[in-house]
Design a protein around this nucleic acid. Structure first.
Lengths: 208, 208
DNA sequence: GTCTATATCGTGATAGAC
DNA sequence: GTCTATCACGATATAGAC
């Protein structure tokens, strides 16, 4: 931890924590100020309004969210291997930031629309890694299933993100403790990996 | 539509709509009253408080959520066929109630805990259909992969629910229109079905 | 930059007339 | 049962002292 964060940084960090946990509507400026060990006036002094502070946090969260994908894709490995590593990284990342997917999805679903904008920019950075071209090439060569890339992304996101998002729901439904769920998540991860790899890179015959 | 709903019913229906769309923290009693064409006093007259009204709605939503699974399981068909039908029904159901999963997951993640309680009751009803025993038997016979049933449920929920939850996110990331996303969802559904069935009921050799 | 005090508004909930 | 009026409170935001 930074031993001497500025007031601005402290508020920003507190805001990130509180917004991610409770969403825009679920918390107040005072709560954020308190979490930062400051008072409300300072929140508005530095960020003008709750809304503007939120926009800032949301954009940075969206960046975390999208950039968490990008690094693996630059490595020099087979597509299947990249996929395995990617899934592993995603689970690891989501264990550290379990609130992130819900936060993004919820705030994107708010009518007011929040800070929706050109997140395409970051997404294009992923395209730049060449991963999409690599997939298309693999599909032409027959090593990868014929499937549009949006579906590929959706399959990965569904299977990696949902389990962390639904933690409390699953714990309640199945009456699990925290430790039991963590274990469950670990074995689930290996199922997800095998299932996705098997489906996307079929080994035997019939690709279609 | 009921041509002559009572005031109580009107408020309940409005509350369901508003709560599902915006969550507990995201709306006010007045907003619900307005949506019902009534005033705030009546909301509290019939339901005493916003919180109690919410509990009511949440429980009924949870019921919808869990019971949406139950019917298929009573039919007389092969396990694989049941799975296919179940996934189809889930997608169908979620198209009609796209806010439901997000709503449940969010409110379960709220610290205050909302109306968390014995949803196990409904879940046990699923167990009563015998589907779990059927799975265990199939696993012993080798027609179904060795996998714990919590993971099976999580795989299904992830792949069916996430795509509708993340609609706005995916639309934004991939710059899709509503119509394009609906199409995408349709082809995605068939991938999900094939992927899950292939994984859970492997046809060839090595189950493990 | 930081704080206290305050203005203004919207909220949940109720009292009381009809 | 239904409405208006109202209360007490907490919210966002700002003004002004230091």
């Amino acid at each position: 931890m930074k031993k001497d964060a500025t007031t601005e940084e402290k508020i920003k960090a507190a805001a990130k924590e509180v917004f991610l946990a409770k969403g825009f509507a679920g918390c107040s400026s005072r709560e954020i100020a308190k979490a930062a060990g400051e008072n409300v006036a300072l929140v508005n002094y530095y960020f003008r309004s709750k809304g503007q502070l939120f926009e800032l946090i949301f954009k940075s969260a969206m960046e975390d969210f999208l950039l968490s994908m990008i690094h693996v894709f630059n490595s020099e490995q087979s597509l299947e291997q990249k996929m395995r590593i990617f899934i592993e990284r995603e689970f690891e990342f989501l264990t550290k930031h379990p609130e992130l997917p819900s936060f993004i999805i919820n705030e994107m679903n708010r009518e007011e629309g929040c800070a929706v904008g050109e997140h395409t920019i970051h997404f294009e950075k992923i395209a730049e890694t060449g991963i999409f071209n690599e997939c298309i090439k693999a599909q032409q060569e027959g090593t990868m299933r014929e499937i549009n890339l949006i579906s590929v992304i959706m399959l990965i996101m569904s299977n990696c993100q949902y389990p962390t998002m639904a933690k409390n729901l699953m714990k309640n439904i199945h009456q699990l403790t925290d430790e039991e769920y963590t274990l469950q998540l670990k074995t689930h991860q290996s199922h997800v990996t095998e299932m996705l790899v098997n489906y996307l890179f079929p080994k035997n015959n019939s690709t279609k």
